[in-house]
């Protein structure tokens, strides 16, 4: 009974000042990253773009994670590649591109008693023949030991930022993607030589 009271109290503090809908507004610092000279298509599926998580059915506390994820994924890919073309339908995918990146939210977990938020994404990376190169999985987590104004929103933004950092690092170390990138750069060099 006492534990239940504490949880309700924590929930109150967690959502205070944000009403019952939390809309994260994640920021991305200017990364140290040498961007790839490629044009990629960011395919935003409706279920990704409109994703929301209702973490407390009793109080109806909802996190609108889809729009925030669109913002931070777009910013991240723009830092990673020369050009990013965003499409919302497969039919909108243009002719000249190097890869299609299709993000998805795999999990979103809020642990009120631990004051922590975790978000996991998968990124399907396809080549220009629309063949899957690899799926990159990342997960970001943030926890705090103290209460902060609008804590749930803050933790979600930090977890998203952490996940994007992991995406940038994993992309550079993923063997499948590195093989593909190497092949791309060799093809380009050959084309440049023929010219």
């Amino acid at each position: 009974m006492e534990m239940r009271f504490i949880l309700v109290f924590l929930l109150g503090l967690f959502c205070c000042s944000c009403g019952l809908t939390t809309r994260p507004e994640p920021n991305l610092p200017q990364p140290i990253f040498e961007s790839y000279p490629l044009t990629v298509v960011l395919y935003l599926k409706p279920e990704f773009k409109n994703a929301s998580a209702n973490i407390d059915p009793v109080y109806g506390w909802t996190f609108e994670i889809g729009q925030a994820s669109v913002e931070i994924v777009t910013k991240t890919l723009k830092a990673m590649f020369n050009r990013v073309i965003t499409v919302e339908k497969i039919t909108e995918i243009p002719q000249n591109f190097s890869a299609v990146i299709e993000p998805d939210i795999r999990a979103f977990k809020v642990e009120i008693e631990k004051l922590s938020v975790e978000i996991a994404y998968t990124f399907n990376v396809y080549d220009n023949q629309k063949q899957l190169i690899d799926t990159v999985s990342v997960s970001g987590k943030e926890k705090r030991q103290f209460f902060k104004f609008n804590l749930g929103k803050y933790l979600t933004e930090q977890a998203m930022k952490d996940a994007m950092a992991q995406l940038m690092v994993k992309f550079q170390n993923d063997p499948e993607i590195q093989t593909w990138l190497k092949a791309r750069s060799e093809t380009r060099t050959l084309k440049e030589l023929k010219r």
Partner: peptide
Amino acid sequence: FRNQLFPYFTGST
């Protein structure tokens, strides 16, 4: 420090 070295010194990196 973490912002200046992003993406390398976050919780998971």
